[in-house]
Design a binder for these strands. Structure first.
Length: 483
DNA sequence: GCCAATTTGCC
DNA sequence: GCAAATTGG
């Protein structure tokens, strides 16, 4: 019989698919006990939040990468499907483990599962230990002077600055003591996370390398090539000027503390404003989790209840045109097609397509949020909901409803040459820059020369923006005070 | 009387 | 953030 100290500890991987800066892993390592690395394919109905199809693709490759990384350390990742508590009990029985370590998750559904597991396992005298690291700070830590959670970003950011630098990230342990007698694992392929034919994700791999190594490479190239000038360039979707770390963060392949740390000590070669601006984006993720933690309804209900009375138009036909990128507004269509093709959309364009859905088409933000959740590789329960509510005007510290993007002007401002549009809307490729964002105003001859027949090769606008804007403002007036 | 630049209302 | 109203040369 193995002595108590020899009993293995289960390291339960969730949305923290990394070895770097992994506090639970580090604690297991320091305990000197053999480690069982486990990933549980939890049923979506259990409240872990539905995993979109694009993220299923990502998860497959990320688990594959983590498995390889553990194999190179003479270990293996154990894969089991089922309710987390049932699986943990079975693995404990099979392995003789008497402790489970994990890094905390902060979405309300995941959190409630974990609280129950903690309680149940303690009852059978199994030690549970949870750790931070998915966020820079615990959501309960940054509170206003009155002890209330922040509802406005600016003071939240100031509090984050006041909190000082987060603790330094932990390096991955150089060696790991991995349990050699492992419980039965399922085969990753049997989870069928990859799309069946037709393979709509075939172009994802042109852009992405899921897994911890891909995250490190992305961080390195971003800091080397794009951090300098980030503040200015980040708004231009045709430029490779954003970090594209979001899916890696969403799966915990890299920690925010690691990213934060990597932007230190660059003052010699990168302007301070660029570093601060990038860090503020990381802080927006932090703020979204802060909000979701303290106001769980953010995920599915209007944070500002006034919007419950908003009269949405919710046309199925309009929604379909938006999803397929056939609205007749090139910048909107380019964004929606980038989303479909690469599972990601540039942040500036996300705001434009979201404004268009909610305000021009008057479709409930929840429809857009659900579509993003299914198609984005970086779909994040906090960021996605908070972002949509921000654009819709229903969120905490939201953009005012009357801030309605003009898709033509936004396109002309942020994609002046039309390069972004041409990349994703090939039927407009030959159109000159002057009309690339307003093909419906191009003279007949210009369209002919570009080989475009409006209504056939490229749609006419499904709504008139100026009219749609007035309609939206009128609908908003109806739910405003005294309206 | 024109047009570009600036200000204001939207709330 | 947009667009209408106003200003000023």
């Amino acid at each position: 019989m193995a002595s108590n100290a020899e009993k293995p500890v289960i390291l339960w991987f969730r949305k923290d698919l990394r070895l770097d800066d992994n506090q639970a892993l580090n604690a297991a390592h320091v305990s000197a006990r053999p480690i069982i690395a486990l990933y549980i394919n939890e049923p979506r109905a259990a409240g872990t939040g539905p995993l979109g199809a694009a993220q299923a693709w990502w998860l497959h490759h990320s688990l594959d990468a983590l498995g390889k990384s553990l194999r190179s350390r003479q270990g293996r990742l154990v894969l089991v499907s089922g309710e987390a508590l049932d699986v943990l009990r079975a693995v404990i029985r099979e392995s003789g483990a008497d402790a489970v370590f994990w890094n905390r998750r902060y979405d309300p559904s995941g959190l409630s599962i974990d609280v129950r597991i903690e309680h149940e396992l303690e009852k059978q005298e199994i030690q549970t230990r949870s750790f931070g690291g998915e966020l820079l700070h615990e959501p309960s830590r940054l509170m206003s002077g009155k002890g209330a959670p922040y509802r406005v970003y600016a003071p939240f950011w100031r509090a984050l600055e006041r909190a000082g630098e987060p603790g330094p990230p932990l390096d991955a342990p150089a060696s790991l003591r991995l349990e050699s007698r492992l419980p039965t694992s399922e085969r990753l392929e049997s989870w069928k996370l990859l799309p069946a034919k037709p393979d709509w994700a075939k172009e994802f791999a042109d852009v992405w390398m899921p897994g911890e190594q891909g995250a490190q490479v992305r961080l390195g190239t971003f800091i080397e090539d794009a951090l300098n000038g980030y503040k200015e360039n980040r708004d231009y979707p045709a430029k490779p000027a954003t970090s594209m770390l979001s899916p890696h963060l969403a799966f915990g392949e890299i920690s925010p503390a690691r990213i934060w740390d990597a932007t230190r000590g660059l003052a010699e070669r990168v302007p301070r404003a660029d570093i601060v601006h990038f860090r503020k984006e990381i802080a927006w993720r932090e703020f979204s989790y802060h909000l979701l933690f303290h106001f769980p309804k953010l995920a599915s209900e209007n944070w500002n209840g006034r919007f419950d009375g908003f009269e949405w138009h919710n046309s199925g036909e309009d929604f379909e045109a938006w999803r397929r990128g056939k609205t007749g507004y090139p910048i909107v269509d380019a964004g929606m097609r980038q989303l479909w093709r690469h599972g990601w959309m540039h942040n500036r364009v996300r705001m434009i397509v979201a404004s268009f859905l909610v305000k021009d088409l008057m479709i409930d933000w929840r429809s857009g949020e659900a579509w993003f959740r299914d198609t984005l590789v970086d779909a994040d329960p906090a960021n996605n909901a908070a972002g949509w509510q921000w654009v819709a005007g229903s969120g905490a510290d939201a953009s005012p409803f009357f801030r309605i993007f003009n898709p033509v002007l936004q396109g002309e401002t942020f994609d002046p040459e039309g390069d972004y549009v041409r990349t994703y809307v090939p039927e407009l490729r030959a159109l000159e820059a002057k009309y690339i964002h307003r093909p419906f105003e191009a003279p007949k001859r210009v369209l002919e020369e570009a080989g475009i027949v409006l209504g056939e090769t490229y749609p006419k606008p499904i709504v008139d923006h100026a009219g749609a804007r007035n309609r939206a403002l009128a609908a908003y007036k109806a739910i405003s005070n005294g309206g």
